[in-house]
Design a binder for these strands. Sequence first.
RNA 1: GCCCCGGUAGCCCAAUUGGCAGAGGCAGACGACUUAAAAUCGUCCGAGUCAGGGUUCGAGUCCCUGCCGGGGCACCA
Length: 854
Amino acid sequence: MTEHDERRDDTDAAPDYDIAAIAAKWQPVWDEMKPFATDDPADKRPRKYILDMFPYPSGELHMGHAEAFAFGDIVARYWRQRGFNVLHPIGWDSFGLPAENAAIERGINPATWTYENIDEQKLNFRRYGVSFDWSRVLHTSDPEYYKWNQWLFLKLYEKGLAYRKESWVNWDPVDQTVLANEQVLPDGTSERSGAVVVKKQLTQWYFKITEYADRLLDDLNQLEGSWPAKVLSMQRNWIGRSTGADVDFRVEGSDRTITVFTTRPDTLYGVTFMVVAPDSELAAELAAGSTPEVQAAFADYLVQAQKNTEIERQDATRSKTGIPLERWAINPANGERIPIWTADYVLADYGHGAVMAVPAHDQRDLDFARAFGLPVRVVVDTTAPVTGALQVITEEMLAEGPPDPVSTGEALTGDGRMINSGPINGLSKSNAISKIIEQLEAAGTGRAAKTYRLRDWLISRQRFWGTPIPIIHGADGELVPVPLDQLPVVLPDTEGLDLKPKGKSPLAAASDWMTVADPRDGSPAQRDADTMDTFVDSSWYFLRFLSPNDDLEAFSVSEAEKWAPVDQYVGGVEHAILHLLYARFITKVLFDLGYVSFTEPFSALLNQGMVLSEGKKMSKRSRKGTTFTAEVDKHGADALRLTLAFAGPPEDNINWEDVSPAASAKFLARAFRIASDVASAPEVEWKTGDVALRRLTHRFLADGPALAESLKFNVLVARIMDLVNATRKVIDSGAGPADAAVREAAEVITIALSLFAPYTAEEMWSRLGYQPTVALAGWRKADPTLLIEDSIVAVVQVDGKVRDRLEVSPKISSDELEKLARASAGVIRAIGDREIVNVIVRAPRIVNIATRAS
RNA sequence: GCCCCGGUAGCCCAAUUGGCAGAGGCAGACGACUUAAAAUCGUCCGAGUCAGGGUUCGAGUCCCUGCCGGGGCACCA
């Protein structure tokens, strides 16, 4: 005690709680024990796979990492306490441009920069106390990893899902590489460099993700409730399926037919002109067959249209432009001859690059028709009733009619009944749609069709630091897959290689590397100089973690059977489309190839919010913001983790100004002191036991799992605080530290705290007399007898207002409770001379007496 | 323009899913300890749930309208 008294003079808050010393003490113990290893085949525990999106090696961890990995670790540690064998691996998404740009700047190898950064992050993670299985680390830039990336590419190629085509592509003029559609922001800039993306016509490699569009869309339904609604909605929007019909229009004076996609085939009788995209082959062809004047005008218009940036083009308020092509199409429904125009409001790469214009019922077509004085014909009476049985259309109804779109400027897009439409007159919209499709199909001039916003995934990149595409270009122009036994195609040494972006892959300049024997006959051939989009790397990495050192296959099918899919995935919403869509696609491909037995890779998804400072994302560069290292130095990893977990619901943003790591450290010291106090009173008084504290402890044990499993970490922490406060009270002014209930509470607190503050909890566990590690102590089972209250307070309301409280048995009958309620003083006073009209009894909780003036 | 979230004490957040508005924290006040301060400990203070209407015995919770904030989509035929 003397030592203790001496320490009281110390300025430190809690004499024994020195988080730096505690962290230094336990980290080596855990390194030795490897409590989070998952490679024991004899382990019979049920399994969970908990994964955070693996980081890009950007050096020191930032607050966003701290938050996401805290959440993932809480979930992993929770399931371990529940007796599960938890796979919680870490790796690095280590190919990509920042390494390459840094290498160019400093004249070093991108690998040097990359692996130095990885080492730094590894140290950060260890310090942060994240419970990774360190034996499964992978880096996508290791040949041992990207070999299997190449294998995956070849599997897709074999299946016809990887192909080359020439097309207009997104070109990032800053990074000097092409980009996939998903990597271009809605404002037409690159999500990486921020540069305005331009269009270029190039031959590139694509993955045929569109072949999976329906499954990618429909399977989202399975994820309803387990994925954030926002992500589901973004993916649905991105895939953008619309259903309708393809209709073939014959071109007058030609064998050609123009097929258009429409969601409104019911309005086919209202088509008054047709519009083709200026940058489509079709437009060029139609113009070429027209007069010289039209040809000249078309050439001008095309140049003008292509000058418009994406931003200008998307401006819906921009007035319509276009020119007539002096060509004519024949409406297959009524044989009408309609003019063909070209206009840039029609997109070449959506549908068939041409639309049938129905100005009366489509706003864009109406705007165009009004601008150029084209005819407008109403074919749907949107004022006619559409519900109930089919009605005869009366004279009055026709006389009334819908408002004229030409004068109002408003297209009639609603439902209604068909008019001016020959055989489909009188039908409702949906009936007309099916009827017209039926007729078109019978006539062979149209068919039901679906179209998507989703485009195939462009995976070629003209940069160095990525996976080489395992294809050889034969002297005859044939594409020859690199034989499997020659994988990996390893990147060349950067020695003497200029990595500066110059519009084509730096690999093309590595002539020794580029020249290779054609696998067919040994004749000289060339490698493919491009590398793969790094999103290919991350589209399957969660499977590689299952057998990360396997040099015979990409991943073990039997291990995948045991562990996958991922039970809880954690990561930022910035990948709502990109990574998550690609990973879902590749998973479905692997399913079709028979490598996995599931079709969705991530059963549950948590998008953590951002950590903001002064309203802006906290970055290493922000002036006022603190850093990961500064916070861990100052308050310890535990306090930082606890702060982020306690700040609010995990999906909400955190304002750094609203939280206090100092307060978290204070709480941890307070919790720690309970363990110290209990340890200082080793003679447990088993006969006593504060029943109220035991009730609270077991209520906590009963409620905790649901809170953890619904990811309400903030509430779970609050409940631990509650239990700590109650225990403190019993120690100071109740039964004292030797009480059995206090010891029990201290142990439960320690185990619960281990999810959030592993270092502090380990030291507490040790003081309580246990061997490490508390991480495997196991969540205690709640004693059901302690969950039943002896008596509870029933509330008695009169007209919804609380008028009395009664202490009753939880097993009280409704009749008896009502009797007590009616007799209670508060009720009698409140009722006075009013008349009781109704009594609602919900035993044992509440009685509500409804009255009225008598 | 369309769609989706959210709005509860000065601040961050809870509320058994329709049953007493408060679990927890921050800030604040007071007290104990101290020569004093800090730290620590203890006690206390605090909204009737954005506004209006509806359903109900009973609404923070369900429905409608509006306001405010955040997000997604948008010339996609």
